[in-house]
């Protein structure tokens, strides 16, 4: 049943990812204290997305899952983008 279970991820990998996450957290705090105007929010979102992909791919084992899982995630993100984007066609042009 190789498809059913994954190999255990070594502790080291998780710890490295954790260090990266902490670093990114401090980065996002640091960046937020510099005035970049509207860019601030985008920088914050960018770093948050980076962090979440680390969590999703490594902590949540998405790396080891089959294509189906990745497709599902993509479908969800596309729909989410549609929901947000189309709502803004109203709000931005009102």
């Amino acid at each position: 049943m190789s498809e059913q279970t994954h190999k255990a991820v070594p502790y080291r990998t998780f710890i490295l990812i954790w260090v990266a996450l902490l670093t990114l957290t401090l980065t996002t705090v640091a960046v937020s204290r510099i005035d970049l105007g509207a860019l601030n929010i985008w920088a914050a979102l960018l770093i948050a997305s980076l962090k979440s992909s680390l969590v999703i791919f490594v902590f949540m084992h998405l790396r080891q899952e089959s294509k189906l899982f990745k497709l599902g995630l993509t479908a969800m993100l596309v729909i989410l983008a549609v929901f947000i984007g189309l709502t803004f066609t109203d709000v931005l042009y009102r």
Binding site: L86, T89, D90, V91, L92, Y93, R94
Partner: peptide, 10 residues
Amino acid sequence: GMSDFSIMIF
């Protein structure tokens, strides 16, 4: 009362 642009798109 939503925006005209949005009405067009939808």
